[in-house]
Design a protein around this nucleic acid. Structure first.
Length: 483
RNA sequence: GACCCCUUCGUCUAGUGGUUAGGACACCGCCCUUUCACGGCGGCAACACGGGUUCGACUCCCGUAGGGGUCGCCA
């Protein structure tokens, strides 16, 4: 697919957060680089000194690390290369590929207004391109400020896009854009080309909102007679119908999803399948599988809507596949954060945590559910689910729970099988269906009507806690029915 | 408005001239089951429209419509 070693990059602006669209572009570049044993680089586009603060890049790098998008080489900061770009502007001026433009912002603004009013395309007239040497000398002598514009050659510019095939645009629609501001600093499109060239970028994979820029950037490559990288414009990620946007997972910042309990493996997998396809019916993949399968051939061309429900489905699938230990590492701080238990308690009972996770992992949508559905494994300060309470905690249940608690207490071995035998034994004697005991017991020891298999649950909790909670429930029921 | 990109179930998608148009998420049934979840089975549901080309179009071409992007001395 290429003769040179692949070098790609992601070039985020320091906005303070990683947008899912940028994340996916980064992901595609990462996958592409890893697949072809190339390099994946990061360049920070912070030329706008006004609004770029160093700290705004940290959350972005953080989110990338979280996703596992590890980059190669040092991060390049455009802000540190500002002076470097100037010489290149001069070269283009000398070679005649660029010219000075003395139009003021006001004049340009007026021109645009007029064009808009006349429903004409809003493009620069090219007035200063036609300045003769006499006029030029006068303007220069009078110290008029100027910008530098590229002189786009007449004709059509074409390139072969990795996603959309051959794309072309007429020079009139590219326009003589500014490459250097009146203070001499390089503009975005110019700096990008210098950087990509000097970084040896071979492939530029980015959102299709950059197609217009690509035609501009190609002008610069050609003016310098530099080799052009291959460009690939992937479809955009759209948000769902605003009315249907969900409450919890409404934002598109990757960090937000992380905070919402999405595991990086799921985000990685899901994002990859938005605009790219492995051409198989399999959808759940590990990172290594995606690296192996990823090629530029299977890009999709149409925009995609980010479906949070499907992300959740991927999240469930990945959580089930993760090891209990890896999940425990992620869940432990959440339990502490939720004040369900303490860091110390967990550290001394890591095995228990892992076991709890193994019981819960199949029923969880996000990491937070481990807390929401498993708090009772760590503390007894829950209340009984209202509906279940009304249904299960009858006077009869109190009597049964009392008897069952006694039998449980008498057990030598507190195991899945012995618990089942004890419970079914009682049910048999009373000629009751096991459910008559199971449901109140579950409610008593967990406060919930849903959860892991009861015997697993009881065994995990252990005899003292089970018996205590059952007797507490009996007291509760008796009190409830007395009043 | 100009220029460009895109168009298969609600959503993500497979499909490259002849298919009962496949899968996944969601949804609805049923099964499994002490609950929930998992799993299994089944169902609902799509080729935007109009012209061509062709023996034959979801597939190719042209229009139309719709969606999206871009049009800064921002990136």
């Amino acid at each position: 697919m290429t003769d040179k070693p692949v070098r790609v990059r992601i070039a985020p602006s320091p906005t303070g957060y990683l947008h899912v669209g940028t994340a996916r572009s980064a992901l595609f570049n990462y996958l592409f680089a890893r697949h072809y044993d190339g390099k994946f680089l990061v360049r920070v586009e912070d030329t706008d000194v006004e609004r770029s603060k160093k700290e705004y890049i940290e959350p972005i790098l953080d989110a990338m690390r979280w996703l596992g998008l590890d980059w190669d080489e040092d991060i390049i900061y455009q802000s540190e290369r500002l002076d470097h770009y100037r010489g290149f502007v001069d070269r283009l001026l000398e070679s005649g590929h660029a010219y000075r433009c003395f139009c003021t912002r006001e004049e340009l603004e007026a021109e645009r207004e007029r064009a808009k009013a006349e429903k004409q395309p809003a493009r620069y007239s090219g007035r200063c391109r036609r300045l003769n040497s006499q006029e030029l000398r006068e303007k220069l002598a009078s110290n008029q400020p100027y910008t530098v514009r590229i002189a786009v050659p007449e004709g059509t510019t074409s390139y072969d896009d990795m996603v959309s095939g051959t794309l072309s645009r007429h020079s009139n629609d590219i326009e003589d854009f500014i490459i250097a501001r009146s203070d001499g600093s390089a503009t975005y499109n110019f700096a990008v080309v210098i950087d990509d060239h000097e970084m040896g970028i071979t492939h530029v994979i980015r959102g299709n909102d950059h197609i217009t820029n690509t035609f501009k950037q190609i002008q610069i490559y050609r003016a310098f007679e530099w080799p052009e990288p291959q460009f690939g414009h992937v479809p955009l990620i759209l948000r769902p119908d605003k009315k249907k946007v969900s409450k919890r997972l409404g934002d598109r910042d990757v960090g937000e999803y992380r905070r919402d309990g999405i595991v990086p493996e799921a985000m990685f997998n899901y994002l990859c399948l938005l605009g790219w396809n492995p051409k198989t019916e399999q959808e759940i993949y590990r990172r290594e599988e995606l690296i192996e399968r990823f090629t530029e051939a299977n890009f999709n061309a149409s925009n995609a809507i980010f479906d949070e429900e499907k992300l959740i489905a991927f999240n469930k699938a990945h959580i089930v596949r993760m090891t209990d230990h890896d999940l425990a590492v992620l869940v432990a701080p959440m339990l502490v954060e939720a004040d369900v238990t303490t860091k110390y308690w967990l550290e001394t009972r890591w095995e228990y945590l892992r076991h709890v996770i193994s019981l819960l992992k199949e029923r969880v949508r996000t990491l937070h559910d481990f807390v929401g559905l498993g708090g009772y494994f760590f503390s007894f300060d829950y209340t009984y689910e209202e509906k279940a309470d009304a249904k299960q905690f009858t006077p009869e249940a109190a009597e049964l729970l009392t008897e069952l608690a006694d039998r449980f207490e008498a057990l030598d071995e507190f195991s899945h099988d012995s618990l089942e035998a004890a419970l079914k034994g009682l049910a048999g004697q009373r000629e009751l269906k096991p459910g008559k005991l199971i449901h109140p017991t579950r409610l008593a020891v967990s406060g919930m009507s849903i959860g892991p298999g009861l015997y697993d649950l009881l065994q995990a909790l252990g005899k003292p806690i089970v018996v205590e909670r059952m007797r507490k429930a009996v007291e509760y029921i008796q009190k409830k029915h007395r009043t």
